[in-house]
């Protein structure tokens, strides 16, 4: 993708993906890859809005759905080259907050608010039965300085209360226990 004439180019191009886990299907990386579909890619602010405004808001999705917004070339999978040594910050949200906080999160990512070089890989919003979860993925889970900067930026851009619990999980741990959260 390329920005159109007169459009505001983003630092990186991104692709939006959507996945929905079918009930009764055991999680595995094979059916994960089958269940995840690209929704669209964009390189400019205008292209982002043109896509985003046509998508259902996270709060209107049914349970077990996820949006994944990743830099172009990075698959939203633990095993991807960019992700395999990485991890993610996880914030659990009570129902009703996901749409607004997801928008704030992705605007911060697209606008390069995290200030961690090319460390950010993407962001995910996960709609579940009793809670929703947003997460932001980075390349190098072993770099504490980077991960703390991401956490602090996340807290600021989401305007989270100081007592909000934020968990960091490496993708190798996710692979080991075959679980995202």
């Amino acid at each position: 993708v390329k920005p159109g004439q007169g459009e505001h180019q983003l630092q990186y191009s991104y692709c939006m993906w959507f996945s929905k886990r079918t009930p009764g299907n055991k999680a595995s990386s094979t059916n994960y890859e089958q269940n995840i579909k690209t929704v669209g890619c964009f390189a400019s602010v205008e292209q982002f809005w043109a896509l985003y405004t046509h998508l259902a808001r996270p709060c209107d999705l049914t349970s077990s759905s996820d949006y994944h917004l990743f830099k172009q070339g990075i698959k939203p999978m633990w095993e991807d080259e960019a992700n395999k040594s990485g991890g993610k910050w996880i914030v659990r949200l009570r129902k009703g907050l996901a749409s607004r906080l997801w928008e704030n999160l992705i605007l911060a990512m697209l606008g390069e608010q995290f200030m961690v070089g090319d460390e950010i890989c993407g962001a995910v919003v996960s709609i579940r039965f009793a809670e929703d979860i947003i997460s932001i993925w980075n390349r190098t889970s072993s770099d504490v300085t980077i991960s703390l900067r991401i956490r602090d930026t996340l807290r600021r851009v989401l305007n989270l209360p100081p007592n909000t619990i934020m968990e960091y999980k490496t993708h190798t741990d996710s692979i080991k226990d075959n679980s995202s959260f």
Binding site: L10, W49, V157
Partner: peptide, 21 residues
């Protein structure tokens, strides 16, 4: 090199630009 940084409000303002629709 220089990074392209956009504040939230700037991005919001572009939401209604004709190119975004």
């Amino acid at each position: 090199g220089t990074r392209i940084i956009y504040e939230r409000q700037f991005l919001m303002n572009l939401r209604d630009s004709p190119l975004a629709r």
